[in-house]
Design a protein around this nucleic acid. Sequence first.
DNA 1: ATATTAATTAAATAGTTTATTAATATTGCC
DNA 2: GGCAATATTAATAAACTATTTAATTAATAT
Lengths: 219, 219
Amino acid sequence: MSKKTRRTRQVERTPGRPSGDSDIRDRLLEIALREFSTHGFRGVSVTTIAKEAGATPAMIHYYFANKQGLYEAVLQHALGPILSRLEAVRSAPPEGEDLLPRFVRGYMQLLAENPAVPSLIVRDVLSPGGQMRETFLNGFASRGGSGVRDLVKRAQALGRLRDDLDPDLAALSLLSMAVFPFVGRPVAGQVLDYSLAPEHIDVLAEHTLNLFYNGASAS
Amino acid sequence: MSKKTRRTRQVERTPGRPSGDSDIRDRLLEIALREFSTHGFRGVSVTTIAKEAGATPAMIHYYFANKQGLYEAVLQHALGPILSRLEAVRSAPPEGEDLLPRFVRGYMQLLAENPAVPSLIVRDVLSPGGQMRETFLNGFASRGGSGVRDLVKRAQALGRLRDDLDPDLAALSLLSMAVFPFVGRPVAGQVLDYSLAPEHIDVLAEHTLNLFYNGASAS
DNA sequence: ATATTAATTAAATAGTTTATTAATATTGCC
DNA sequence: GGCAATATTAATAAACTATTTAATTAATAT
């Protein structure tokens, strides 16, 4: 009933520099990632983010100049490591090997370890007017998406995959199975029982590869 | 450079009841579906919707009382027919038949014919605070999602599907392949070549079923 | 010690946007 | 001709929101 009901961190700090080291900057980044990923850029106010992080809006301008600056910092903070690790997965030893399994495992592992990122991507890439749409498409999707199609073609050339499959459609299906469990979790997780915890993600990855290669038919 | 640059319909109507029949109500519903599905409820203003539909904000209150009323009307208008048709698909003759193919074909056909619906769902179900989250989960996902799992179990009992597959995971994979091409189109469609036009959707549906049942392995 | 720099809050500002309502005008119908 | 239906224009007003300024305290360097 009192006024201070919705407060998450009720530190009641007074003005002035606090003693000891501060982790407000990091907390702001974490909270902002969470909020932006669920409500989108326009859907969250700096006031909300600050309050949630146990700080004041002025801190956001102190550390990031403005809201846009905060957003860009969040992107870099969240996507940077992922992109470089993804690149490492792709530039693997290419000796006549079907690279799809390696790709799927690495990809799903990455998504599992960074649960807010899929939502952030959905928010900002799937909706027109999303900030990082081009950035994303250039630096990520082109490597992830057409990358998968190239890997499919290659596996076909190696005689590992059926030749009658359309590479685009096969890549689409594989990508769907790898990505949708994450972005669709709020709805799918409600009616289907599966875990996306990083320590269990190999179960899903192996299932996916098994299904993709062998199919579900009996006999 | 002039003020009236972004106008879509430049009818320049004058006040007063226009001659002939009016389709403004329908146009408002269509535009609102499009806008809500791409920007979410909070992301669109009634002014925008009205302008886009060639009308004024006051008309929205005339027909729907307020913004929330418009939203609910949109939901009913867009989802109602889908839900009933989906129910019809599910209550099909159950004579010892594997119903999965029928389900997948009907499901993808429905999504293809109503392109705004997947986005609307993504917007309002995937993000916390989405209006129709519970409504949707109760009336739709429970039938669609766990429905698929039940169909998988049944197909296993009939000896059509491998017994070693986890029904939840198999259902998840199938659902992923059926849904993701639609919701992920803005990103996937950029790098992979596939059509979601209703008249081509059977290509994708047959591919999906083929892959699901037979797998992608050569030999 | 003292001055300067860093980190923080409180409070004000100012700007935009937004949903909604009131008043008014034109057409259709009995 | 008059009431009901369908529009527009314009006003309201309320809520928010991003950002800035000033004040306050702690840390650090001199």
